[in-house]
């Protein structure tokens, strides 16, 4: 019954064993802009199976490798409250990402770290992306990125997705991270 009226019937693409980057983070931190910066304009929008939550998928080339990039609905915590968060977590746990970009609002580091800590605890391959860094700087905030990397034992990147600042560095970190993980595996 529900499918009858004009619903797009494309489903989420099945996992195909390719390389995969998953973008997570709370709403309104610029996840979609990071997604667009990495993938270019083209994205496939599909409903996550069995829900009305929409998931964006696109493709990015990083260091000569092709990655499927998945932009998840906003999540605040690994313990889900809304359907969106549930879907985001399912994607995280079932899609076996090579890198998880936690896009965070640099202005609210403390609140954002709550999710970062959970992702690290879950031993997911996290890269913390401190987005909207220009606004944080405008407010007079300075974040010691190397120190933060040592504290978290995870890579951290400062970006401003509206202007594209730091996105190339982010690509570099992804490449580094994935190839190191691969070395570790062999």
């Amino acid at each position: 019954m529900r499918r009858r009226f004009g619903r797009r019937t494309r489903q989420a693409a099945p996992s195909d064993g390719g390389r995969r980057i998953v973008i997570v983070g709370s709403p309104n931190v610029g996840k979609s802009l990071i997604f667009t910066r990495l993938t270019g304009a083209y994205a496939v929008v599909s409903n996550y199976p069995g829900t009305t939550v929409e998931v964006f998928r696109g493709w990015a080339h990083v260091g000569g490798e092709r990655y499927e990039v998945i932009d998840t609905p906003g999540m605040y915590s690994l313990l889900p409250v809304s359907e969106e968060e549930l879907v985001a977590r399912r994607i995280l746990l079932s899609d076996r990402p090579d890198a998880v970009l936690h896009v965070a609002d640099a202005k609210n580091l403390e609140r954002m770290l709550l999710l970062t800590l959970q992702l690290i605890e879950a031993r997911l391959p996290v890269i913390l992306v401190l987005n909207i860094i220009d606004e944080a700087e405008r407010l007079g905030m300075a974040i010691d990125v190397p120190r933060l990397e040592r504290e978290l034992r995870a890579p951290v990147c400062a970006t401003d997705a509206t202007t594209g600042r730091g996105v190339d560095a982010l690509r570099g970190r992804i490449e580094e991270y994935v190839s190191r993980a691969r070395m570790g595996r062999h």
Partner: peptide, 27 residues
């Protein structure tokens, strides 16, 4: 328990934030 766990995580986040964040002139 979710509350206890959230408090403990909040403490860790506050600690890290204090270590890495410095504020300049108030806007």
């Amino acid at each position: 328990l979710p509350y206890i766990i959230a408090v403990r995580r909040q403490e860790e986040a506050s600690r890290i934030t204090r270590a890495v964040l410095s504020r300049g002139a108030a806007p």
